[in-house]
Simulated scan of single mutants.
Amino acid sequence: MISHPSRHCTVELQALPSRIGQVRRIVSAQLRYWHLDSLIDRAALGVTELLTNVHLHARHDKTCTVELEVLLDRLTVSVRDHDPRLPVVDDADPLATCGRGLAMVAAMSESWGARPEGDSGKVVWFTLSAAVAASAPLTAAHPPRRAVEAAPARPFPEVEQVGLGRPQPAPARSAVAG
Rank of each mutant, 00 (worst) to 15 (best):
I2H: 09
I2Y: 01
P5E: 12
P5C: 09
R7A: 13
H8D: 05
E12W: 04
S18W: 15
I20H: 02
Q22P: 00
I26N: 02
V27T: 14
V27I: 12
A29V: 09
L31Y: 06
H35G: 02
S38Q: 11
I40H: 00
I40A: 05
D41G: 03
G46T: 06
G46M: 15
L50Y: 04
V54E: 03
H60N: 13
V66P: 07
V66T: 12
V70C: 10
L75P: 05
T76D: 03
V77K: 10
S78R: 06
D81V: 01
H82D: 05
D83I: 02
V89H: 05
D93C: 04
P94A: 11
C98F: 13
M104D: 01
M104Q: 15
A107M: 09
A107N: 14
S109T: 07
A114F: 13
E117V: 03
E117N: 13
S120A: 15
K122E: 03
K122A: 04
V123P: 04
F126K: 06
F126W: 07
T139W: 13
A141K: 10
P155Q: 11
E158M: 04
E160N: 08
L164M: 02
L164S: 04
L164N: 00
R166L: 12
S174G: 02
V176L: 14
